[in-house]
């Protein structure tokens, strides 16, 4: 073999080795977390180990559509995970425990199944007192029917109710409000000399006095991002996935365990007064925290903070009550 042939072969073989080797080397050295629609695998990996006090650096990419990343109950801005792009996120944990990370941009009917856990090990300086949710303290059966036997003829107005509220000896504390459904309060007001519509207005004003414009705004945002796709932008249970949910019943059941007698249901209509006015904030808290157990309603307990859930609940009642003129 002459020299030029030998050199040519060396060039060719080096080129081929480089073309195969270089991408492989860089590929294996870049550990990426892949985000996919839940039906195609969700997060991969979906369990991440971390340590208290050590910053956790994550590189996340999406393999199909727009996703988002956030850690439940953590004060952080959700980060968009765009297809074919890599988002870098640094997380700091000051308490050990199991955290849930979840997708924050709707990516299909099973978007809410797209969750994973971060297992944070280490010792905690101050152990967190475990708080029991209100619906547990009150011993509520959150799956029991809770229809209001009487509903108002029009939308109750908090503004009208405010004018009546001053001369009434009625408990307006947060605990009272959270433990009672609007109908229960309406019923309790029956002793007062008021018309039915005045009593409903009064209930509306009590509900209003237990929230703030900031809470409502926060609740509205949480609702738009997390609930509206099924429950509808106007709360009427007619979100873009409502029909799919009703239709996909059996099929989706295959992925659930131990819930064979449950069916996917159409999302609840928050504009329905019979249902909403018969539900206390504590009951709604239970439903949101625990989820629908196979009905298609996700469990939000590991994702929302307690405050966020109360804000959201306050907003849900705004589909029933008129808070402004």
């Amino acid at each position: 073999m002459n020299r030029s042939e030998l050199l040519s072969r060396i060039f060719v073989i080096t080129g081929i080795i480089l073309a195969i080797g270089a991408p492989l080397v860089f590929w294996t050295r870049t550990p990426l977390i892949h985000a996919r629609m839940a039906e195609n695998g969700g997060w991969n990996p979906d369990i991440i180990q971390a340590e208290v006090g050590k910053p956790l650096q994550l590189k996340i990419t999406s393999d199909d559509v727009v996703h988002g990343f956030a850690v439940g109950q953590m004060d952080m801005q959700s980060v968009d995970i765009l297809p074919g792009k890599v988002s870098e996120i640094t997380l700091n944990f000051d308490k050990p425990g199991i955290y849930t990370f979840f997708c924050t941009r709707w990516c299909g009917l099973n978007h809410w199944r797209m969750r994973g856990t971060i297992e944070v090990s280490g010792s905690s300086s101050d152990p967190e007192p475990v708080s029991v949710p209100l619906y547990v303290t009150l011993n509520l059966d959150i799956d029991a029917p809770h229809d209001a036997p009487v509903i108002p003829s029009g939308q109750p107005s908090a503004i009208n109710g405010q004018q009546l509220v001053t001369n009434l000896p009625i408990n307006q504390s947060t605990d009272y409000y959270r433990a009672n459904s609007p109908y229960q309060v309406f019923d309790e007001l029956s002793s007062a000399v008021l018309t039915e519509s005045e009593r409903w207005d009064l209930v509306a004003s009590i509900w209003k006095s237990n929230t703030t414009p900031e809470s409502l705004a926060n609740g509205q945002q949480l609702y738009a991002q997390n609930c509206a796709a099924c429950h509808g932008e106007n709360g009427a249970g007619d979100g873009v996935f409502a029909d799919d949910l009703a239709a996909s019943g059996e099929a989706s059941m295959q992925t659930m365990t131990g819930a064979e007698n449950m069916m996917m249901q159409s999302p609840v209509d928050f504009t329905n007064p019979t249902r909403m006015l018969g539900a206390s904030p504590a009951l709604l808290q239970g439903k949101i925290l625990r989820g629908g157990m196979g009905t298609g309603m996700p469990m939000w307990g590991s994702i929302f903070t307690e405050e966020q859930i109360w804000d959201l609940i306050a907003y849900l009642y705004s589909f029933q009550f008129e808070y402004q003129n």
Partner: peptide, 27 residues
Amino acid sequence: LAVFIVMLVGYIFAILAGLIGTPVGSH
């Protein structure tokens, strides 16, 4: 030959990229 080597390297890289790169075509 020089063009060939560049093309072949690019071609093999394209195969590798297709197999191990992001499944998102546009990237």
